[in-house]
Structures are given as C-alpha cells and as structure tokens.
Simulated assay, not measured.
Amino acid sequence: MKVSIDQSRCVAAGSCVAAAAAVFDQRDEDGIVVLLNASPPADLADDVRQAAAVCPALAITIED
C-alpha cells in the first residue's frame, strides 16, 4: 500500500487522524494533514482505507 495526500485539498477536519493516527497527523499552525508513513504496514491498511473514506476533501489517495 502506498499513501499520498494532497495538502492543497485538505480542509483540516482531522478525520484522517482519528481513523489512523499512526499514519496521519495535523500541522499545529493550521491543522492541514501531514503524512507520517507513506507505506504503512498491512495491519494498518483498514484504518488507512477508513481515513480515506471519511476525508471530506478527498485529499487521501491509496495505491495497492
């Protein structure tokens, strides 16, 4: 799994962090998403897919 984010689309909702805190974080100054791990382990795959599904801005892309 390869994860990428589009920070320009992010609306700082924080849904991704709630779903997969080991993979996503938010910048302190504006809440924009930060990718912590672009190739998360298989045991986090469901959480990452959930994060992408709940992102209101569709800022998360996943390649399997």
Rank of each mutant, 00 (worst) to 15 (best):
V17L: 10
F24D: 10
A57D: 14
M1C: 04
C16G: 08
G31K: 04
D43W: 04
V11Y: 04
A51G: 02
S4C: 00
A53L: 05
Q50C: 00
L58E: 15
L44C: 01
Q26K: 06
L36K: 13
E63F: 01
S4N: 12
A59M: 12
A57Q: 11
A52N: 05
A42E: 14
A52H: 03
C16H: 09
K2S: 03
R49Q: 02
S8K: 13
V11A: 09
M1A: 10
G14E: 13
Q7W: 00
V54T: 11
V48W: 04
Q7G: 09
L44K: 08
V3C: 08
V34N: 12
A59N: 14
Q7F: 00
P40V: 02
A13D: 12
A22R: 12
A13C: 08
I5Q: 11
G14V: 05
S8V: 01
D43S: 06
A52E: 11
V3A: 05
A19K: 14
A42M: 01
A38Y: 08
P56R: 07
V17Y: 06
V3K: 12
R27I: 03
I60Q: 14
A19M: 12
R49L: 00
N37F: 02
G14S: 06
A12P: 05
I5P: 07
M1E: 07
A18Y: 09
D64E: 15
A12D: 07
R49E: 08
A52W: 05
C55S: 11
A57Y: 06
A13P: 04
V34D: 15
L35S: 12
Q26Y: 01
L44S: 02
A20D: 13
A42R: 07
V23R: 10
F24W: 09
E63R: 11
D30H: 07
R27V: 02
